[in-house]
Nucleic acid binder design. Sequence first.
DNA 1: TGTGAAATGTACAGGGT
DNA 2: ACCCTGTACATTTCACA
Lengths: 168, 168
Amino acid sequence: MEETDRAIVAALTADGRLSYTDLAEKVGLSVSAVHQRVRRLEQRGVIKGYAARVSFEALDLPLTAFVAIRPFDPSQPDDAPERLAHLPEIDSCYSVAGEDFYLLLVRVAGPADLERVLQEIRTAANVTTRTTVVLSTPYENRPPKISAEQPNRARSRAPEERAGSSAG
Amino acid sequence: MEETDRAIVAALTADGRLSYTDLAEKVGLSVSAVHQRVRRLEQRGVIKGYAARVSFEALDLPLTAFVAIRPFDPSQPDDAPERLAHLPEIDSCYSVAGEDFYLLLVRVAGPADLERVLQEIRTAANVTTRTTVVLSTPYENRPPKISAEQPNRARSRAPEERAGSSAG
DNA sequence: TGTGAAATGTACAGGGT
DNA sequence: ACCCTGTACATTTCACA
């Protein structure tokens, strides 16, 4: 991916409602060119969508917790993510290496709700849970790094290097 | 917060680029009214901003990991979040209950990068690390629940209930 | 809530590398 | 052939009453 595309993605992760006018100014392109590139990035799946970042406290979801789960019976087929997908309190589901099978991020209104959700998780996926309560969130979902494309020395080499071998 | 506001927030978490026209249609209000409400939600901090949802694989950040940290010397002042904030590989930082002090979510290009970031975390915050590699992500950052405001039985009770008991 | 002017989004056709 | 540019029109934003 080109550097201009990376600049566009970086700008849109920081502010997803940037106008094409501002975006064009930021990356030094015309409005039409930026518009085309954004559409291409969306089609290619690099940009998967847009979302409002909200205050979970204001939405009456002040309690966040990580829930590590592992199957009660490891011989059964492992389809926990699908079995749990219907629970709206689950924000994210990660399949992880290590002792646990999955790590869930859940957001609830309070301890009573957490207890209920944990029970629902256990019965829905037939798993045991180990819960870590989040006390505060210094920062979350920051814009990603987006470095300049790493040189990838295997495919494109500097001209001086090319002299040695044939292959073309 | 009113139900209409909740509907607005729910719609914008699902699609942050919804036009006010579409938004007004969804919640059954005039365009101007929706526009005003969104501005108020933004001012009140309920809506903190907007962001593009991106494919981290496409951005050359295919490796995600959770890094639990605890201080090497627990008697020192605990300012790990500030000390680590400059590392762009850290997506999120949660202060947690339990054995560990913080749980970090990091995104990197590969194992070599992860090793480098772990070393930087240890030296920058004077902590030990315990890392859990993410193998896959069935889902992540789903739109939150956004229920209709819960009745809050302590303050407003149904008429039938009021007869029987005193003081809860 | 409705109106209207200004800004923006979007498609189209032309031109440069 | 691809990508950038500029113009022209539909839509949206946003302040005001």
